[in-house]
Amino acid sequence: MLALIAGTGTLPDELASQLSERPLICSLEGLEPENLKPDLVFPLEHLGSFIAELKSRGVTEICMAGAIDRPAVDPSRIDAQTLPLVPIIQKAMMSGDDGALRAAISVFESVGLDVRSAHEIAPDIFPPSGCLTQIEPSKRDLEDADRAAAIVRAMGAADVGQACAVLNGQALAIESVFGTAWMLKSLSQRPDAGGGVLYKGPKPNQDMRVDIPTIGPETIPDVVAAGLAGIVIEKGSVIVLDRKRVISECDRMGIFLLVREHAA
């Protein structure tokens, strides 16, 4: 039996809709998903009890999808079954994104639960390769995408971000802890004539079971407001939420969306 641990946003609902059988929907307290009613809601302080409940219901595998902020932990709420996990929780709260996610995986795997990725349980979650829009990228755009991919690889090695904006080989902005939308908004008053690409892809050695880069309809107006010519994502590594709407919005607003084959 599969349990979907759903974070915020629309990814959990889109993922669940692609499954032939409804999974057990679970979410952290205060971080419930959009358009999807959880069967179980648990505080982080009851993680041990939550895992015991999953086992009692016959759950053998889990998938984590959606955004999850790091909640504040109230020591007075920690129950007896969670006490043994406190050192792991503390380490996760003090780690970077990759370290925190690895810690989360280790907790579930240590009790015999198989952690599955979104694309394992729903292979069509990734878009096909190629240009998905009416407007196509220029040669300069493709060169900027190559440069951006190299920048993201370098940033990813330091566990910094999964996106950047590049024009003429120069980084205009890089993603930080505040995310892609904030990065794009920082370009809304750029002093030049515009142009360049938004690139998004995974970090080197990123665990795609729990942290898949994502764009959605809300990304498109932010890209336009940033003065960029289009979006480039890595094939088989970036989810496009509400894909038809994203493509339609790109066409309407005059930007391209390219799903790029991995460079050799």
Rank of each mutant, 00 (worst) to 15 (best):
G66D: 03
I68W: 15
F126R: 00
A52P: 00
S237T: 11
C164Q: 14
F126L: 04
T10V: 15
S110M: 00
A103H: 05
P43A: 11
E234S: 15
C164P: 12
A226K: 05
G130V: 10
A171M: 11
A163K: 08
Q170T: 13
I68F: 15
E261V: 15
L47M: 10
V223Y: 10
L44W: 15
D69C: 05
S20D: 09
G30I: 11
S76K: 12
H46T: 08
G66C: 07
D79A: 03
D124K: 09
E14K: 07
D114H: 10
P204F: 05
P71N: 06
E218I: 13
L83P: 00
I105T: 08
P137T: 01
A100V: 02
K91S: 11
A173N: 07
I88Y: 03
R252L: 14
R102K: 06
P191G: 01
E29S: 11
D114K: 13
I5S: 06
L101S: 02
W182V: 04
W182N: 09
M94F: 06
M93R: 12
A150E: 15
I25P: 06
F42E: 10
P71M: 03
K235S: 10
A72M: 10
I255Y: 09
E53Q: 14
T133P: 04
L167D: 01
